[in-house]
Every structure is written in structure tokens, then in C-alpha cells.
Write a protein that binds this DNA or RNA. Sequence first.
DNA 1: GTTAGGG
DNA 2: CCCTAAC
Length: 682
Amino acid sequence: MVSTKRLGYGFNGNQSPTMLLVPRSAKGKRSVRKKSRDNHTNAIDMLATIAADLLLESEKSFTAPVIGGPSNPTSNGTLKKEDLFEVKPIKEEAFDQGSCSESVSGSNGGCALKEHGKLNSDVCSKNPTQKELMTKCISGDCGYPFERHSPCYAECWEGNLAGGMRALNQCEPLTNMSPDIWKGLETCILGELMQLDSKPSALVSSDSSVEVPSSEDHIPRNTSFPTGWWEEKQLHLDRDDDDDENCSRCTHGSTITSKVFRSHDKQNDRIKKLLMSKFRKDSRLSTNRDFPNSDVDKKLLFSSRKIGYTRKRTQRYPFKRRKCFHRGLMSTYDEAVNYEYMSNLPEINMKVENFDMDASLHEANIKSSNVTGQRSIHESEDFHVKLRIKSFKVPELFVEIPKSATVGSLKRMVMEAVTAILRGGIHVGVLLQGKKIRDDSKTLLQAGISHGDKLDKLGFILEPDNVTLSPPLLTNHEEPSPLLPCNATEPLTRSPSATPLADPSTIIALPELPNPSAVNSPESDHNSFHFPMDVPLQDDHQDEISSDSRALVPVPATNMNALSIVPIQKRKRPEHSQRRIRRPFSVSEVEALVQAVEMLGTGRWRDVKIRAFDNANHRTYVDLKDKWKTLVHTAKITPQQRRGEPVPQELLDRVLAAHAYWSQQQARLPTKPSPAEDCMLN
DNA sequence: GTTAGGG
DNA sequence: CCCTAAC
């Protein structure tokens, strides 16, 4: 018996950032849209993207970006010119510390914007050039209807005045799209947002101004910053007037009147009709590229280059901002799986081709849009729920390995473990407030994955495919567990329930260690160094993982409790765990098996197991029996017919001999010990 | 829980 | 390596 200290490691994958843009009406988890193929859909795409941006940020509270350049103004507010022109890349780490962290902590939710607002105020007051530039961007001089999507404004935000100026100069006005049209579109979208806010007082009044109540009350307490998008917008517009007061206004959510709502209602309705009509036609004529030449159609056909730039911006900012200000939110999205396609951010983020699939909803939209004032909340169906999955975690793994093991062996163990989990296929489970959403046919809206407060509780789970559905076990796993970041730094210490590895008898001898019993131990062979799969798959263990880590912890296959709640498509073994990983017998294992069978015979596999494979936890006596069966078969066929690692002919000869002998013995006296065993017993 | 045998 | 009948 080998006694050796083991090191426990917990793994949680770390993968590339992802962002998903999914229409609310999308069904199922795989409703990722295909990329748009023409300018028409590009235009809709862009509008949808913008709308989604606005929507999300109105719901989840938009937070201001951090100025990249003069991020650390001196106490007296003095800013050097070179500071303004210096492009300082924003490091993500910066968002996890300092004022960002404070603002995230919750008590002073307005701190982030306050800081930012003051900062920007300082910048503006000290540098009228930047202020002017920003104003130009806001006013639409660069042709972008929403300043946040304006390249020059974006640059200004980051303090990159030179870049902002360059962007402004390079920016071609969208001559095909009159400002009024854009204003109208904007108003339409914002109208949707207000409706979504579910505030009865959110009205589009006929006097061309809109009173927008604060969304503060609807912001989850654990979100970082209770400020609506329009509030931030207003902050920009009113920055000339004050600085600190901006913050208090935003934070306390007083009623404001925003310039952006001052559009003409009739025009808005007309535009909306055209837009909705356009969307509807698009959904019906998805393959028809000859689009009607309505005004909107023409005006939607603008340069795709701009769209691309806009998208680039829309991806860029939410990523940074929420990293800073929405830590609590982001953490729920951090859970993820290492899917290759997930890393293709630009592709996924532009999936809005079938922007509107629900014709009935469109009808409702058009119908309701004809009615001024209250509109159905279903209008928001057309917008998107934007989920940013920062990373997907691979299943949490547990590896126990002697300190003396090599790094290479550790790598192999991890590789084996990962392979074992992935080989059976894998799928994503969706958790909302700790509960599984099993009905793939539900829309996101129906499932409740549409509102900001709910999105906080949204999580994803990576699960093996070969799992089963067992209702009696549901309650165990369905307990709402807050989805928080998982550090998984103490994976093994939190398992009070003894695992097989805690038992010395299950410790696997490793080649690096002197092993007195290695003579008969197949595990002493270098090739037989395997990841102890039995260990991490204990039920109790996994339950703790699921509840403690609270992250996207994919459920190992043999966790019956967890697996039981997983809806599956490919369910080949409904009531059982994932197939064990294939572990070919090494030559030394074969030798040990042959030797044991020579002594014990072919009908005492349990004894064979105990005698020769007691340390090999992954070899059951059934495995040994099966292996012997295949060995006999292998010995009978020609070497050319054999596959896998060649077994020495000497061993195969012994197999045949032993097989012949014990077949004969079993026919005569099934219980008589072999001469060899007699010798051993003596 | 083991064994044996088909898949 | 899985599954299961038979013990």
C-alpha cells in the first residue's frame, strides 16, 4: 500500500469573453441569429442593436464610461494637454478597483457616475475643445443619431481628443437619413423603453415632450448603479450647468425632460409604421433582396461600413462599463462554458437576421403604434435581451495527485478528466433565479429572461448530455442558489463526505514513487497513470460544488442528483450515468491479470480484483472479466487482426494456456483451488 | 454483491 | 465498457 500526500486542485475554466444578442422572441437556447447579408437587414440589424442597447441599459441602468485619458485628474482639476491627447488603453483591472469597486459595493450607487460626471465636467470646463467636440457629436454633427454610437463621441469619452477629432472629421454625415428621421426613430425606440419600464406615467405626450420617470425603483438593489440611460444622456446635455448636481439628480431619479423626446409625434408614428412594416416585410421576404423603395427603405440602405463601426462601438462600451459598474451583474454572466463558437463575438453579437419572427406580435405592434399613448408591453418583444457571457467555465474538476507527480502527468490527468466530461456531449442549461428553465420552446419573454432584475439571476450551466430526468430528485438541485462568481479555490476541503480518495486503499501508486507492491500492481506502470475519475463524481461532492461555487459549474456525468434535472435531447441511457472513460489495459495490467487468473481461475473475478487490482479503483472485477474475455479472443486471432497496444505473444500464450486449463477445471471441479493458489496459500 | 454472457 | 439475467 502506498501512502502519499495528495494535492487537490479545483479547476474552473477561463475562456474568452462572449456577448450574446438574442431577440426576446427567440425560442430556445439555440436561437442565435444568422448574420445579416445585405444592407437592408444591416440597417435593421443596426437599429435592433441600438434598440437593444438602449433597452438593456434603460432596464439595467446605464452607467457612464470612464474617461480613459485624464483618468486621474489632479486635486485641483488641472489637466495637461498631453493627458488629453494621450490614448491610454483602459485596463480591465482598473475597473475592479478604486472608485469602481466602491460604486459597485452598493451603498453609494451613484458614485460611479458622480465621479464620472465630475470628471467630465472638469474636462469640459478645462478644455473647451473637448467639450465642443463632444457637443458636436451629441448634436449629431457626425451623423450618428445616438451619441453613444458615435465614434467621435466615443473617443471623447475616453479622453482621446485627437482620436475623437479624427473620427469626427472622417465621419460622413448620414445624408440619406435626415436628422428628423433619426430623431423619430430614436423617439420610437425610447418610447418602447418607457413602456418597458412599466411605469404608468411613462407617456408620450402630444406636446412633443416626454416626462420620463426615473427607473430607480426598478433597478435591482444589487445592481450597481440606479441610473437610466436617458438620465445619463441628460447628464451630458446639462453638463454645462452643473456637475455634482447632475449626480444627485440622476441618483435620486427626479423627473426630467429630455431633449431627445422632443420630436413630432406624427412623424414618429409615420416612421414607426414604416419601420414596423419594413420589419414585417423583411420577415416574410427573408430571401427577397428586391425591397420596396419606400423612403425608409432607401434611408436604411446606408453604408455598411458605418454600421460596422457602430457595432464595434456598441460592443466595446458595454463591455468595459459593465465590467466596472455592474460587477454583480456581470458575475452572473461570468458563468460559462468553453465553447469555441462562443468566442466569435462579432458574429454572435450581430445575430438579428430574423429580427422579427412573430407576425402576430408585429400586427400588435403596428396596431398599437397607431394608438397614441399607451402601448402594449409586447412591443418590447422586438427588442433584444443582451446577455454578455464573459466566460464559460469548463466543468469543475478535481484532481488528486501526489506532490511528486510530474507536471506532465498532471496535464494528462486534466486532459483525461476534461475528455471524460466532454466526450459524451455537452449542452447548456439555463437557470433563472436558481431554477432551471426546461421548456426550450418558451420565448425569453415568457421565461422571464427579459427584465433587468431578472437578468441578474440568470445563469448558465454546462452539463453533460448523457443525463437523466428524475423528478423526485429535482428539489435537491432546484434550490435557488445565487449565481455568483466562483473562485473554486478550496475545492477539496469542502467535502466532508469522504470520497474514495480519502481512503488509503484507493490511492493510486504513481511511477515516481517507490512502491513495494508495484510488482503486482498494474497501476505501477507508467502507462496506467490515470485520473481517478471515481473521485470527483461523488454525489455529495457535486452537490456542494453546485451550491458552493454557484457558478456555471457543469455537472459531472455521474452526479445523479444534478443530472436528473437536466432536460436532454440525446438520452441514450436515461437512468444511468455517463459512460466511463475508456482506459485501455496496459501491458503491465495485462500481465498482472494473467498472473492472477493463472492462480485464481476464470470464475473468481472478485478475488482477481482484490489480488491484482486492489489499488486500481477504476478497474472493477467486471472490467477484469471483460478484459480476460477480450484477451482470450485476441490470443485466438492473428496478429494482423489485433488492434491497440500489442500484447506480447508470451502473455497471450499464457492467456490461452490458463483459459484452457481453467475451462477444463471448471468443467470438472469448479471450486477447487489451483495448484498455484495452493502454493500461495501454503 | 457476483458471475456470466451478450451487446 | 455497458447491460442484465441469474444466482
